[in-house]
Design a protein around this nucleic acid. Sequence first.
DNA 1: CCCATATTCAACCATTCGGTTGAGGTTGCC
DNA 2: GGCAACCTCAACCGAATGGTTGAATATGGG
Lengths: 109, 109
Amino acid sequence: MSHPLDAAFSALADPTRRAILTMLLEDDMAVTDVAEPFDMSLAAISKHLGILSRAGLITQEQRGRVKWCKLEPDALRDASIWMQSFGQFEAVNLDAFERFLASELSDDG
Amino acid sequence: MSHPLDAAFSALADPTRRAILTMLLEDDMAVTDVAEPFDMSLAAISKHLGILSRAGLITQEQRGRVKWCKLEPDALRDASIWMQSFGQFEAVNLDAFERFLASELSDDG
DNA sequence: CCCATATTCAACCATTCGGTTGAGGTTGCC
DNA sequence: GGCAACCTCAACCGAATGGTTGAATATGGG
């Protein structure tokens, strides 16, 4: 997994990890709180967070005994730019975007 | 791999597949021609093309004994839109884009 | 000090992934 | 018809992935 884009895209390929990123859009969160909504062990979530962190999509800061997870949206920029080279997408249509997000949230994000 | 975004992102996670997509930006290509620059068996490339096809990123049309591969850039739209929800990227800076593409092409894309 | 909380580590497991090889099925051409 | 070109299939392989469990390591609070 040498190229940074490898790490970014493969991190994004997992629905649990995308859901975590979506949660972190709201606010920074502790690992335990990130894990809470998922039907999965804490250790599994900890691994997912490690993958997101190594991909640069989040950062984690230890403060006391809790480790705070913070979204790092800039890391998505390169991946986003790479994709823009295909299709010459027009600036995102916000209506379509709203509809898309709605369908996303009713699913799993 | 239920969610369409799973397929798209995990297809994009492999550098060989990203390179293939970049090649297809130029023109439609036959499977053998896609395989030519890679140090890898034809069967391996055929599998990669299958993955790209199942992810909707390309389509393949059989014509005679050659199967033509065609980029399907619209499939990148959803993934692109998903990413836009993070970071509220400003409209892509074209200078940065040029620099990025240059560094990409000198690497492996 | 002791206990609970927060998180990771280590070992394990089943499945998937990315590659190989060899055989096989069409299609096109002489 | 027969051979070459184009592509996939099937079986196999080693390594990575996504999950589990149980133990280990801080840290904070009464």
